[in-house]
């Protein structure tokens, strides 16, 4: 049994860089994105092998699933843009832009190419050597975390680190997510191109079945996060997947969410987190110092609020712009279903 797992480890460790290489070398962008998503799934397998189930869940949902969906929808939009461009110019002379220059350049400047490859190989070997040379610090902060688990209010060590010991990091991280939504909204607006598009019966049924299930799963993940793998990010990511499904299915309810409510939903998590952090100072404690034995309750409260915001924010990132004035976001219909179902399956 051990040998099988060891063999599996070797294959996995070799497959990761190989996939990465294939993905960047492929001339077809769609293929590259698909390879990227499969790389993400392999990564989450790797996390499982490395005994990091929390990270595995987050990687599968966010790293592979949502990021992949983002890439697919961006690719779709790029293609649509260049199509309309081509139609305007009556000629396909832009085609070469995407595929040929890299190859051309590689042929044109093999010296530079080989040189940069050589430098990178040297870099990897040097770093690998130094990593092998230096024994790591034994356990890092692990013992310190284990020693204080009693006061953390939760059983899961990762959740304790994320929301108690290093909760301030997570607070700022929520700000990063909020900032991303702000950035996307400031840059562009969702276009209402396929207003009248109706989802096929399969997708509609799927949505009706999956979305409630996903909401339950998200709630479960947040709840279980205090003792096992799971938590706000994983739960939020599942919520986001539900949101993406709704967007794909072009459900009218999603389009009719008032913009004000959407804004509040984006802000809810970070705001409540921030206010809780400050409220902790009320009793004479420090920032984010949960009073007395109540840490567990506060953490669950923060996690629920942030999970909602994470879900809404990630779905908004997928929608790819601020809602158009009259109604709420709706998005691409062709490329997405694959990724949406993909996520559904994982949830």
């Amino acid at each position: 049994m051990m040998d099988v797992m060891g063999f599996f480890d070797i294959v996995l460790a070799l497959a990761l860089p190989w996939l990465g290489w294939r993905l960047l070398a492929s001339s077809d962008l769609f293929r590259a994105v698909v390879l990227f998503i499969s790389l993400g799934l392999l990564m989450s397998l790797t996390w499982v092998r490395l005994q990091a189930p929390d990270v595995a869940l987050a990687e599968a949902a966010i790293g592979a699933g949502l990021t992949g969906a983002l890439f697919l929808s961006a690719l779709r939009r790029l293609e649509r843009l260049s199509e309309s461009e081509r139609r305007l110019e009556h000629a396909g002379k832009r085609e070469e832009d995407e595929t040929i220059p890299p190859e051309k350049r590689r042929r044109a400047k093999p010296v530079a190419y080989v040189l940069s490859l050589f430098l990178l190989v040297v870099f990897v070997l040097l770093l690998g050597w130094s990593l092998g040379q230096t024994p790591g610090a034994k356990g890092g902060l692990g013992p310190a975390v284990a020693g204080q688990m009693g006061q953390s209010g939760v059983q899961s060590q990762v959740t304790a680190v994320l929301l108690n010991f290093r909760g301030y990091d997570t607070l700022l991280e929520m700000m990063v997510l909020f900032l991303a939504a702000l950035g996307v909204w400031s840059l562009t607006r969702v276009r209402q191109t396929q207003q009248g598009e109706v989802p096929g019966p399969v997708l509609a049924t799927l949505v009706r079945l999956l979305v409630p299930l996903m909401i339950i799963v998200a709630g479960y993940l947040v709840w279980i996060g205090s003792s096992r793998a799971g938590g706000a990010f994983q739960g939020g990511a599942v919520l986001a997947a539900a949101g993406v499904l709704l967007l794909l299915a072009n459900v009218t309810v999603v389009r009719q969410v008032p913009a004000g409510l959407l804004r509040w939903a984006l802000v809810l998590g970070p705001l409540l987190f921030l206010l809780t952090a400050v409220a902790c100072m009320g009793g004479g404690g420090n920032l984010l110092e949960y009073p007395g034995q109540s840490a567990g309750v506060w953490i669950l409260f923060i996690e629920s609020a942030t999970a909602v915001s994470i879900g809404v924010t990630l779905a908004a990132l997928y929608a790819g712009g601020r809602p158009p004035a009259p109604s709420a976001p709706e998005k691409d219909n062709e490329e997405g279903p694959g990724s949406g179902v993909d996520k559904g399956g994982k949830a």
């Binding site: 990021t67 990762v158 680190v161 990063v176 997510l177």
Partner: peptide, 20 residues
């Protein structure tokens, strides 16, 4: 040595940052 949860938390943060 038992597993150190701090890098796990850092990677979770990193994943969210990179999707953003």
């Amino acid at each position: 040595v038992m597993i150190d949860p701090v890098p796990h938390a850092m990677v979770l943060t990193g994943i969210v940052v990179s999707v953003s």
